[in-house]
């Protein structure tokens, strides 16, 4: 039997909001170490990797490894039925073809359960090599979301240029050209407002805005976002999920033909 409980539905609701527009469906691979989901979007230009550790749940039981193919749009609809402060429990029998979501109100007066059919998804799993990235930028997640949204008005592509001075986001098209330069911060009082750049060597990479803007749907999950870049390999956009895990988005670059 599989059973995972969170005392607060907020995080799970935000996780679904962070992936449901990019992915139509995904397989939740459950083991005693937690829940993993890895899936590419339909165009195979981006990949989502979600990791939720079992010790981040308020109760976690996984007798046998279990893969649950979920329609993420349906799962998001079910989670819309939960209040943020409801306790949420995900339950499935070992060789089940359905999964149950149970929501309990804080005052225990209201208990709801929603049963959803599971899907047979034969999604292939991709190996993501450990990479020592040339540039790693940590910055406020809201700032990154704002830049992606603003620059998408100028072009379908954003050029990210990272040097020891700072990181520059550029876009140019019919409207005109835009450059947003962020310098590394040194004396911020709040860690989450810092802009930290670890640079082995400078990089210049081009990415499609529409995917970056899909990734920033994860902004409510974390104050900070981490961008990892190396020449001619996918960008990694990572949001940590406090005390539970992280969501990593990989975006294939646009390269000179």
């Amino acid at each position: 039997m599989f059973e995972a409980r969170l005392n607060n539905a907020t995080t799970l609701k935000k996780i679904l909001d962070a992936i449901k527009d990019l992915l139509n469906e995904g397989t939740f691979d459950c083991s005693d170490s937690g829940i993993q989901l890895q899936a590419m979007d339909n165009s195979h230009v981006s990949l989502v990797s979600l990791t939720l550790r079992s010790d981040g749940f308020d109760k976690f039981r996984c007798d046998r490894n279990l893969s649950m193919g979920m329609n993420l749009g349906s799962m998001a609809k079910i989670l819309k039925c939960a209040n943020n402060d409801d306790t949420v429990t995900i339950k499935a029998q070992d060789n089940a073809d359905t999964v149950t979501f149970m929501f309990e109100s804080q005052n225990q007066e209201k208990v709801s359960d929603y049963e959803m059919k599971l899907m047979n998804l034969d999604q292939e799993h991709l190996g993501i090599p450990e990479t020592d990235y040339s540039c790693v930028v940590r910055m406020p997640a809201m700032e990154f979301a704002r830049i992606c949204r603003d620059l998408a008005q100028f072009s379908e592509s954003v050029v990210i240029c990272c040097t020891k001075e700072g990181v520059k986001f550029s876009a140019s098209g019919d409207v005109g050209s835009a450059n947003v330069k962020l310098a590394q911060t040194f004396n911020v009082d709040k860690e989450e407002e810092a802009i930290v750049i670890e640079m082995q060597e400078p990089v210049v990479l081009t990415f499609a805005c529409r995917y970056l803007n899909a990734f920033t749907k994860a902004t409510p999950l974390s104050n900070q976002v981490q961008l990892s870049m190396s020449a001619d390999v996918p960008l990694v956009v990572e949001y940590r999920i406090a005390e539970l895990g992280h969501i990593r988005y990989y975006l294939a670059p646009k390269i000179e033909d």
Binding site: M40, L47, E124, H125, G127, T206, A252, K254
Partner: peptide, 14 residues
């Protein structure tokens, strides 16, 4: 011109 690459050309199927 810039060409959009695919994830599959960077990560191998396991």
């Amino acid at each position: 011109t810039v060409k959009q690459t695919k994830i599959g050309s960077f990560f191998e199927k396991e």
